[in-house]
């Protein structure tokens, strides 16, 4: 049966089609991967920061600073919203202030507030804690980083929107290029389509032959594009190393993320196949 050979092995322009599809699938998948990584990292970062607060015990809060810090710690550790509370060591305070005061400064001589890092439980609420501390220890302050967090979240949301827009644009461009390239390849086969039509081939038979041919090309290109993406992601993870900067998280996805990243693969193969089918059917319909 030479059924599978009715179409030539190489159509004019079709040799380039897998490459064009590969590049477009690579760009679209990379954009989706970037978007997903950004969403994952901002989400994780936001969750972490939401559960952290800093309590400041001013030096004039009591006669004996250490005693006040101990009392505040006692209140914090008993509170149901608090998971952990830990006073910062002097060395940690020095590290925090070193950009302004320099190393070996006389930090011990300065009237600095004592900072306490507090980690809230999941769903822990801060208002009752704030009220109790302010009532029992005048001058003690709780900083929940709300303003700073708000600004950072606004920036993250803008970045996500930008990423979504860029991804959509790349996908749109990919669709246009794939449709154009597929049609160009098909145009070179106008005589063959006409001959099959004239000797009595059903339109669905002719469309089916082209559909299979272009599905194979589409899958070849899409798989190539996804392999390039996998290589790029491995390279990125190697470059980031084990200790990424806080704003550059290692890319590690779940099944849903992998499915989303593979979306351009399926889309490209389907678009190529359907473009071939409908172009051939339209050509044949015009002949009747």
């Amino acid at each position: 049966m030479f059924h599978s050979k009715i179409l030539p092995r190489q159509m004019m322009g079709a040799r380039l089609l897998p490459l064009i599809i590969a590049v477009n699938v690579y760009l679209a998948s990379l954009a989706i991967t970037g978007g997903l990584a950004l969403i994952a990292s901002t989400g994780q970062w936001s969750n972490e920061i939401e559960q952290l607060v800093t309590v400041q015990v001013p030096p004039e809060a009591g006669v004996s600073g250490d005693a006040v810090v101990k009392s505040v710690l006692g209140v914090l550790r008993e509170h149901p919203s608090v998971a952990k509370a830990r006073p910062l060591e002097l060395s940690e305070m020095e590290a925090l202030l070193s950009p302004w005061l320099g190393r070996n400064s006389a930090i011990k001589e300065l009237p600095l507030p004592q900072l306490i890092d507090v980690e809230l439980r999941q769903g822990g609420e801060i208002d009752s804690l704030r009220k109790r501390l302010e009532a029992e220890f005048p001058g003690v302050e709780i900083d929940d980083h709300r303003q700073w967090r708000g600004q950072m979240l606004a920036l993250a949301n803008t970045s996500r929107l930008l990423c979504f827009t860029i991804t959509s644009m790349i996908l749109l461009a990919a669709v246009s290029v794939i449709v154009f390239a597929t049609r160009a390849s098909l145009e070179s086969q106008g005589d063959l389509v006409a001959l099959l039509h004239m000797i009595g081939a059903h339109n669905r038979f002719v469309a089916g032959e082209f559909q299979k041919y272009f599905l194979r090309l589409g899958l070849m290109g899409a798989v190539l594009g996804l392999m390039l993406l996998a290589l790029s992601l491995v390279a990125i993870n190697i470059l980031i190393g084990d200790n990424p900067a806080p704003w550059l998280m290692r890319i590690s996805f779940g099944p849903v993320d992998y499915a989303l990243t593979a979306l351009p693969l399926l889309s490209a193969a389907l678009i190529t196949m359907l473009t071939a089918r409908f172009t051939v059917l339209r050509t044949l319909a015009a002949m009747d």
């Binding site: 049966m1 030479f2 059924h3 009715i6 099959l196 000797i199 009595g200 081939a201 059903h202 038979f205």
Partner: peptide
């Protein structure tokens, strides 16, 4: 054989 192949007949 093309006119026979497009009818789906076996070679």
């Amino acid at each position: 054989a093309l006119p026979l192949a497009i009818e789906g007949r076996n070679e």
